[in-house]
Design a protein around this nucleic acid. Sequence first.
DNA 1: TAGACGTGGGT
DNA 2: TACCCAAGTCT
Length: 257
Amino acid sequence: MVSEFMLQQTPVARVLPVWTAWLERWPTPSALAAEEPGEAVRAWGRLGYPRRAQRLHAAATAIRDHHGGDVPADHAALLALPGVGEYTAAAVASFGFGQRHAVLDTNVRRVLARLEGGVEFPADHLTRAERDRAAAWLPDDDLAAATWAAASMELGALVCTATNPDCGACPVRRDCAWLAAGRPAHAGPPRRGQAYAGTDRQCRGVLLGVLREASGPVAADDVLAAWPVDPSQASRALDSLLTDALVRRLPDGSLTL
DNA sequence: TAGACGTGGGT
DNA sequence: TACCCAAGTCT
């Protein structure tokens, strides 16, 4: 479950060392829950989307308080945990507990879009049609389904990649509608990029980074000084971090994770 | 249901 | 140098 949280939008290679250190420090949900959420955010390092660390801590707390300290195997119980959405609930139930669930991550969605849909990329957001298609591909047997989930994900991650897919090495190349159609390029409007430079998001990251690297609380002015180009934007970003409880303001006005 | 939400490596 | 994009979730 820890790895699934970390892998939400972050590549495996960057997750690996953080995941190792994390499990060494917090081998159980209860161990994590016993620490301050800010420590989780600090240990998250530079994986990005630090609210995932906050939610993982909250999930650990819920597991301690409501599930006897053990990650629940029940899909609905998993889905009810903070930070656990459709993908992560299915992934934990499937990979962790050998259950039969469609595990629809970006890799599997791309594989099915090409293999059966004949298009290069799936829609921006998961659709009903994709869920139906994925359900139809899922083997009946529990363990076969779990194996399929892992295999189809791996196929997308290693062979049927977003750019430069290795169709020659693909085990289902003879059945692929997209390959048969001559690998047509994505039609329709360009997929929305993720502007970042100069955004509030980047600003939040910079401010949070100051607190993450500091050994203790930092004066608010020193935090804001890390974003000198636009003080009003820095102020707004700090407010949002406080609202999100990613940052706390101490009685003396200084800031901490 | 679009859009917000971090970060860094590959092309 | 830019842009792409990576095992998503939440509102």
